[in-house]
């Protein structure tokens, strides 16, 4: 059960972080036209398809004791093989997803609406809020997609978390370990819990989405 709780805590926190960072980025890219925007969009789409295990490797090298961040003694820099390092890796994986899907949703909003809002004298902040609320279904999809990606992710959390029993072992890494040990029953049971969580989250989001799009 500890494993389930940690999985939820790590992926939930990472989702919160990436939502807070990703949605404004996505909204900005969707609303503003600036020089180099197509290039930034191309970068974003590339980052959306980035293999999580490579993100894990980069975070690992960054946080390693002889890496650039690992040498700094600070409470704000997570240590390798801690839940905080896993949250960092999952956030890095999720931010481009949230930002990319949010951008797509914002781009899908009727451009005339934007003109209207502007002509009514809205501040940029109000403009963003109104557009996002218009694109809310897409934004919810962005969050669900990101959660699906990080909750099911195994490579990055295995690398940066180290799969330490009772400390950094989450559902996906526990499935890998039990399979290696030949404990297929336990591995399958853990897998079913993972699928169950995904089902509950997605159903909740679907219901939410239906309520919202009314």
């Amino acid at each position: 059960m500890e494993v389930v709780a940690l999985s939820l805590r790590v992926s939930g926190t990472a989702l919160l972080v990436s939502t807070v960072i990703g949605i404004p980025i996505g909204a900005f890219l969707g609303l503003r036209r600036f020089v180099g925007r197509p290039f930034v969009m191309a970068l974003l789409y590339t980052a959306m398809g980035f293999p999580p295990v490579v993100v894990g490797l980069l975070v690992y090298l960054l946080l390693s004791r002889n890496g650039p961040l690992g040498q700094i003694e600070s409470a704000w820099i997570p240590r390798l093989f801690t839940p905080e390092a896993m949250i960092l890796a999952q956030s890095v994986i999720a931010v481009p997803l949230v930002a990319g899907f949010t951008m797509a949703a914002v781009l899908g909003v009727d451009p005339q609406l934007q003109q209207q809002i502007k002509s009514l004298g809205a501040t940029p902040w109000q403009e963003m809020a109104t557009t996002l609320s218009e694109a809310r279904v897409g934004v919810i999809i962005a969050i669900v997609a990101a959660l699906g990606r990080i909750a099911a992710e195994v490579g990055a959390v295995m690398l940066v978390g180290g799969n330490i029993d009772g400390r950094t072992r989450v559902l996906t890494t526990a499935v890998v370990l039990e399979t290696r040990k030949g404990n297929f029953e336990l591995a399958i049971a853990l897998g079913i819990i993972l699928i169950g969580i995904a089902f509950v989250v997605n159903t909740t989001m679907l219901i939410l989405q239906r309520q919202v799009s009314k």
């Binding site: 389930v4 805590r9 919160l16």
Partner: peptide
């Protein structure tokens, strides 16, 4: 929903070694 997930394991959450 998010708060629930984050707080999901308040009991096992441990302070980082700082």
């Amino acid at each position: 929903v998010l708060a629930l997930m984050v707080a999901g394991c308040g009991g096992t959450a441990e302070p980082t070694a700082v």
